[in-house]
Design a protein around this nucleic acid. Structure first.
Length: 217
DNA sequence: ACCCAGGGTCATA
DNA sequence: TATGACCATGGG
């Protein structure tokens, strides 16, 4: 049904922007940390926070668990929501270690891993799936706000569907391929920032021929 | 002075 | 199921 269209959109995005090299991180645990810190937050600010963690030498589950919560909060402060994020990182680190470390944790069966992640405070479907896709490298399609906005403006969805419904839609319409999902999500974020913000800048949009949104102006 | 950013939780109806 | 308030920093 939409298989053709979804693949065509990917093709155009890749042609327009090229490979995005996601997720930008030096280790799987850094991916997990970034996934929490970037919640409703500009990536720039996340980079500062992660820089602080590296500088302090605490970018490991062991160190995060050791560090007093107030100290952790001070380090991740540039990322905003820093008190709850410090708490969230703590509980994530605790879960990782209780399953034998990052490697063992990420090697759990994907369904089981997803269940554990979702049971943690402050980890919802998008954060969990980002970890599954970019840290555990499992073929899970990540649905974020840009995905909703872009595809609703293209006319394929309303935009307010439940998370699982959209994830199922994308996974049904695309080949089950981890690299494809990684690149697709990254391209959607790139395209969203560039052309599909709340205040749209449709001029020069690589998807304009497919977009039913411009007419509404 | 606004608006927004690579969400999630909780209370309410 | 579906809104709304809240969390907080930094850039445009």
């Amino acid at each position: 049904m939409e298989e053709r269209a979804f693949s065509e959109i990917y093709r155009r995005l890749f042609l327009a922007y090229g490979p995005q090299g996601w997720w930008p991180a030096d280790s799987p645990f850094e991916v997990m940390v970034g996934a929490v810190l970037t919640q409703a937050t500009n990536w720039r600010n996340v980079e500062r926070a992660i820089g602080n963690l590296k500088e302090a030498g605490v970018l490991s589950p062991e160190a995060v668990l050791q560090l007093p919560e107030e100290e952790l909060a001070r380090l991740v402060r540039p990322a905003g929501f820093y008190r709850q994020k410090a708490r969230r990182l703590k509980s994530l680190a605790r879960a990782v270690l209780s399953h034998g470390g990052t490697e063992a944790f990420l090697s759990l069966p994907p369904g089981k891993l997803r269940e554990i992640l979702l049971s943690l405070p402050g980890i919802g479907p998008e954060t969990a799936d980002s970890i599954l896709l970019y840290a555990a490298e499992r073929p899970v399609f990540v649905v974020d706000a840009y995905t909703r906005r872009i595809f609703s403006r293209l006319g394929f969805i309303r935009g307010n569907e439940p998370y699982e419904e959209l994830r199922a839609l994308f996974e049904r319409c695309l080949p089950r391929d981890t690299r494809l999902y990684q690149e697709y999500h990254a391209l959607l974020v790139r395209h969203g920032k560039e052309h599909c913000r709340a205040r749209p800048r449709c001029h020069g949009c690589p998807l304009r021929e497919l977009c039913s949104f411009e007419k509404g102006k």
